[in-house]
């Protein structure tokens, strides 16, 4: 995604730079022609406006860059607390990455994590059984 947006933006910038250079050349040529024709024939030439192709190129370049930049924005996040928490629950860190694939700095994890770790709800018998098995396996390995 980010490569697409970057290449579109780069292409648009190239077009815009070309349009800018063309417009500059056009105005320079215009002033040069006005100066020479005034010296030669002394008939004032009307200053022509920008050629239509440069104008079209400018507008197209702006639209292309616009699409590239919009595609390059980082994904939005839901503002409703319930949707936001549901998204974390469903997607975890994957839903909170920016375009470079890095998890955002202000991502603070599942808001329900503290519920999972409450001491009252720890299954102590299961943990004891697991510990006993672990001890047994350690003992077998040492023999």
């Amino acid at each position: 995604m980010t490569l697409i947006s970057k290449s579109i933006t780069a292409f648009g910038s190239l077009l815009l730079a070309h349009a800018c250079y063309s417009a500059q050349e056009h105005s320079a040529l215009q002033s040069f022609r006005a100066a020479t024709s005034a010296a030669l024939t002394s008939t004032p030439t009307a200053a022509t406006s920008l050629p239509i192709d440069i104008a079209i190129e400018t507008v197209v370049a702006i639209l292309v860059i616009l699409i590239g930049l919009v595609l390059g924005t980082s994904p939005l996040r839901p503002i409703q607390w319930r949707e936001w928490a549901g998204k974390i629950e469903r997607e975890g860190e994957d839903g909170f990455k920016d375009n470079k694939g890095q998890v955002n700095r202000d991502y603070m994890g599942n808001p329900f994590d503290f519920i999972e770790g409450r001491p009252n709800f720890v299954d102590i018998r299961k943990q004891r059984k697991e510990f006993a098995e672990w001890v047994k396996s350690q003992g077998q390995q040492q023999k």
């Binding site: 924005t73 980082s74 939005l76 996040r77 409703q80 607390w81 319930r82 955002n104 603070m108």
Partner: peptide, 15 residues
Amino acid sequence: ISPLVQESLVHNSRT
């Protein structure tokens, strides 16, 4: 009833 997440609000408007 339906609280908002400040961080998301800030993130969206900053984007």
